[in-house]
Amino acid sequence: MSRAAERNLLVLASAAASGLALASLLAANGATVHRTRPRRGVAPRRDRHPRAEAVTAARELNRAAGTLAASVFADSSVEHYRGSFKNKAMYTPLIVSALTLATSIHGTGDMRPLAHKARDAIYLLAAATGLVGTGFHLYNVGKKVGGFCWQNLFYGAPIGAPMAILLSGLLGFCSERVRESDRRRPKIFGLPAGRTVAAVAGAGLLGTTGEAGLLHLRGAYHNPFMTVPVTLPPVGAALLMSAAGGRYGRMHRLTRWWMRLLTVMGVAGVGFHAYGVSRNMGGWRNWSQNILNGPPLPAPPSFTGLALAGLSALGLMREDPDA
């Protein structure tokens, strides 16, 4: 690849990371949907049409899926370029995540209470890509000398990375099930939609924490702030799991504020990673090399996407405690 093409690709990846941070922040602001908050001891209002609530929640989930897809697109662009696209299959996550991002933008702007077949197909493709990609990354690590040792886990293909596009597809697919629901209590395969999405987002937070913990362990936690993405998200996951299995109550208010905290943490993480890039030899003057060496700028907003999904799930349960 020519030097001009190299520079263009890295400029694109850097711009994507910056745009992702801004988009995530705007998404966080837009996630506070004007729903009626039930007063203590008072049942939620029923004056709004239930389909309107379902569409609102579905659009929030589209936004969460899009944030994850944007993170995957920018991150895989840089990481797979660093691997020189040795395997042509390495172009797949770029194409699929770009399609998923476009699909989520379409879904976010769609006010109709109907599932879209094309969106469903792309979201399922994204989920399948995440599963297959995880298998490729496991194979990549396992075939190295020493197999699944710390050295290979640190420097081989990141095992947890493809799960982000799987989660994006899964959340997007759930959004279509919520959107098409004609009940006051939306269902996903017969399960309460709010609790199902809360469980998925909680599990996703735990998996993303594991990936961040592994890479920050590689960095020896030399900056105390590196402990933040391995301490705050597990608490958020526990709160979401509790919400998924419990009753509507005071803990939901704490969970909602914790999701907002994680949303901000994901955006702030881009700034911390940008600072980490600046500390490499040559700083931003040597950006064409240092962006490849990390830390990865687009990775932290994965937490933002999952937190937005958690907020959507809590919104569904606020409208109906049994949702």
Rank of each mutant, 00 (worst) to 15 (best):
T103L: 07
A4C: 02
E176I: 06
R39V: 13
R183W: 04
Y221Q: 00
L239K: 01
L22R: 01
A164Q: 07
P50F: 14
R63C: 01
E6Y: 13
V55P: 07
G271I: 11
T134H: 09
F303K: 07
N286I: 03
A54Q: 15
S181Q: 02
A309C: 08
N290S: 03
L215C: 05
S175P: 05
G276C: 10
L138V: 09
V72N: 04
T196A: 12
S84I: 15
C149P: 04
L217G: 05
R3E: 06
V197Q: 03
I159P: 03
V200S: 06
L306E: 02
D320S: 08
A70P: 13
L61I: 09
L153R: 08
N293H: 09
Y81Q: 11
P192C: 07
A220W: 12
L217R: 12
W258H: 13
R260P: 01
A58E: 07
F225K: 14
H216D: 10
A238C: 15
M259W: 07
G269R: 07
G245M: 15
G213N: 08
R59M: 08
A17N: 00
A69H: 10
L262P: 05
L297C: 08
T56H: 03
R51K: 11
K187C: 11
N87Q: 15
R195K: 15
P44G: 05
T32S: 13
A4F: 10
G266P: 06
A17T: 01
G172H: 12
A307K: 06
L138K: 08
S97R: 06
A21W: 09
G66E: 12
R63I: 09
L171C: 05
F148A: 02
A69N: 11
P298D: 09
G271T: 09
